[in-house]
């Protein structure tokens, strides 16, 4: 009993420590400029004068009390982030699942699994600068397809290795059973294997979406203005007159947390359900 209490206290403590910066960001998003600039001597956790002005500012570019108006609102970067993250995730999950299935089942490809990791072995900058040069030659800098493609490529190893481990666990017999009943190999994959690993695909997709959604380096190097994503846009939220716009950044941070949360909740069923290959007594 005391053990349980102790454990609960420790867990609560760690949770509080982990959540403190996030909750600080959340309250800061509702503070007026006077409360987050260093000009004031007094710092409070909760806003004394709660306001939506930070949100209004990033979405409209102007708000009462801010002399400088933003030349770009958050709408387009938000769209750019969503579009490139989703397409990048689709590329990685579809290609990664297909490749993992082929390698797991047919033992083809030799050491392709390891070569896929090459992009991840080097420091990101060492990889991304050459990619930037290539993309420049290909005219893909600051385009949605250029950014989506590289997102798909750099997250492919994750989806490949995650899905491969799931496929490795799933006995071949279950497909052979379908083939004996008259299915083609593709039908067996599509009708039997895929529905069984759908929860694995969902959790892989969520994982990869979050990777893409939170990327800063790649978007910084491969976009200029048109297709900058939320993290890059957020960094630019500063003006000569007002300095760093912390309130606006906090508001944006809060907005940026929403898509992964919505996605996580919507596929929660699969995440919780996990992988039940229950019929197969090994």
């Amino acid at each position: 009993m005391t053990g349980l209490i102790l454990r609960t206290v420790v867990v609560a403590l760690f949770a509080a420590i982990a959540l403190l910066p996030i909750s600080w960001m959340a309250t800061m998003a509702f503070k007026p400029p006077a409360e987050w600039t260093s000009a004031t001597a007094e710092l409070t956790f909760l806003p004394k004068d709660p306001t939506w002005s930070n949100f209004v500012y990033v979405f409209t570019g102007e708000v009462e009390g801010q002399i400088v108006s933003l030349d770009r609102t958050v709408w387009w970067p938000l769209f750019a982030s969503l579009l490139t993250s989703v397409i990048g995730t689709l590329i990685a999950v579809v290609a990664g699942t297909a490749a993992a299935y082929a390698v797991s089942r047919e033992k083809v490809g030799g050491s392709i699994g390891l070569s896929l990791l090459q992009l991840r072995i080097f420091p990101p900058l060492a990889v991304m600068i050459p990619v930037m040069i290539m993309w420049a030659f290909l005219g893909m800098i600051d385009t949605w397809w250029g950014l989506s493609l590289i997102y798909g490529i750099v997250t492919l190893p994750f989806s490949f290795w995650l899905m491969k481990s799931y496929f490795d666990e799933l006995p071949r017999e279950i497909e052979e059973a379908a083939i004996v009943e008259g299915c083609t190999a593709f039908e067996a994959f599509y009708q039997i294997t895929l529905p069984i690993v759908v929860s694995a695909v969902a959790s892989t997709a969520l994982f990869i979406f979050i990777l893409n959604w939170s990327d800063y380096l790649i978007a910084l190097l491969l976009t200029r203005k048109e297709w900058t994503t939320i993290p890059v846009y957020m960094n630019a939220l500063a003006t000569a007159a007002s300095g760093q716009l912390y309130g606006a950044k906090a508001a944006l941070g809060l907005i940026a947390a929403i898509p992964p949360i919505i996605l996580g909740i919507s596929i929660q069923r699969f995440l919780v359900q996990g992988l039940t290959f229950g019929a197969l007594k090994q």
């Binding site: 006995p171 017999e173 279950i174 052979e176 059973a177 379908a178 083939i179 004996v180 008259g182 299915c183 083609t184 039997i192 529905p195 069984i196 759908v198 039940t276 290959f277 229950g278 019929a279 197969l280 007594k281 090994q282």
Partner: peptide, 19 residues
């Protein structure tokens, strides 16, 4: 091919389609 042989196969793991 297996599909056209018309055999029934009961696997050691039973290979039930659990979904």
């Amino acid at each position: 091919s297996t599909q056209k042989r018309g055999v029934g196969f009961v696997f050691q793991s039973y290979a039930i389609f659990t979904h």
